[in-house]
């Protein structure tokens, strides 16, 4: 039972990260209709930034998070103004833009490999403290911190989308571009906001996951797939459903790799993605986000 609870705590922490990836994915998808395959590499960029700032430059965690946000913002602007907007202006078909996200991810990975080398680097835990025991279950402090930070972030995003005029306008941009434009919403600027928000959420997810699984140029894909799975399983709609689905996937992964087989645990996540896609009702794909 103790083992089970400990696994559950780690599963929830990891799953919250998947939820963040799902959230990042959904923000761009709903604003522009684009399926962003660079999601995993953006997470990797966050993790690698955290590694460099924390382990090589010896900065404190608050500064590290700030650095990750700055790098994320830069990457978002590069992608939006260097690739996405020029393609939209040229009337490129969506499938080309999807391929562009793949190529952008490839460039990020390759750049990281060139910069630091293709290995997995360890990253110090956020709180080096000893595990704390609650009701006989000892828990890693950082699992709790990671979960808390992830959910606070999601809370902030939810607040942004429901309680601020910019957030509501951004939803309007995603739901009905004409409606937003005739109401005076700066459509192009808000799409940039969506890119920035998405990349920041994803990269912070990378910085959070780095102490658990390390940081390395090729870390992105496996996590991204679970994030995609969470997004699809959550019905491609709301902020919190994607998080809940992410936590579910994290739990399934942790428990199945312990009780069934660690070798086949990834297959379970991939199968969840596949089945969720196949069973996803057509209605979900076409309608927009609710929150």
């Amino acid at each position: 039972m103790t083992t089970f609870l400990q696994l559950a705590v780690s599963g929830i922490a990891l799953g919250s990260i998947y939820g963040l990836v799902a959230l990042g994915f959904l923000v761009i998808y709903h604003a522009t209709g684009l399926v962003n395959f660079a999601q995993g590499q953006l997470l990797m960029a966050g993790a690698m930034t955290a590694y460099v700032l924390l382990m090589q430059l010896d900065l404190g965690y608050p500064l590290v998070l700030l650095g990750v946000v700055v790098v994320a913002l830069l990457l978002a602007l590069v992608f939006r103004y260097g690739i996405h907007r020029p393609m939209v202006r040229r009337g490129a078909p969506t499938e080309n833009m999807v391929v562009a996200t793949i190529a952008f991810g490839l460039v990020l990975t390759a750049a990281a490999e060139l910069g630091i080398g293709n290995t997995r680097y360890g990253v110090d835990p956020i709180f080096p403290g000893a595990p704390i025991a609650i009701g006989g279950v000892s828990m890693q402090t950082q699992s709790i911190v990671i979960t808390a930070v992830a959910w606070v972030l999601v809370g902030l995003v939810w607040f942004f989308f429901t309680k601020t005029l910019t957030g509501v306008s951004l939803r309007a941009v995603g739901l009905n571009r004409t409606a937003a434009a005739v109401s005076g919403v700066r459509v192009s600027r808000l799409i940039t906001v969506a890119f920035a928000l998405s990349v920041i959420v994803t990269a912070v997810g990378g910085a959070l996951v780095a102490p658990i699984i390390g940081a390395g140029p090729s870390m992105g894909l496996a996590i991204a797939v679970k994030g995609f799975a969470a997004a699809v399983l959550g019905g491609m709609s709301s902020v919190y459903r994607g998080m809940v689905a992410g936590v579910a996937i994290g739990l399934i992964e942790m428990l199945s790799s312990y009780y069934i087989s660690s070798a086949y645990a990834p297959v379970i996540a991939y199968t969840i993605l596949f089945l969720a896609l196949v069973l996803m009702p057509a209605r979900v794909r076409k309608s927009g986000a609710t929150a």
């Binding site: 399926v35 797939v225 995609f228 699809v232 070798a263 993605l273 596949f274 196949v278």
Partner: peptide, 28 residues
């Protein structure tokens, strides 16, 4: 049959999952 139930760019996600399942099986 399952893949063609997936529409648009989600099909890319589906085939991605498929490729990864096969890759994992090849290793394991």
């Amino acid at each position: 049959f399952p893949l063609l139930r997936i529409h648009g760019h989600f099909l890319a996600l589906g085939t991605l999952a498929l490729g990864l399942i096969v890759e994992t099986l090849l290793v394991q």
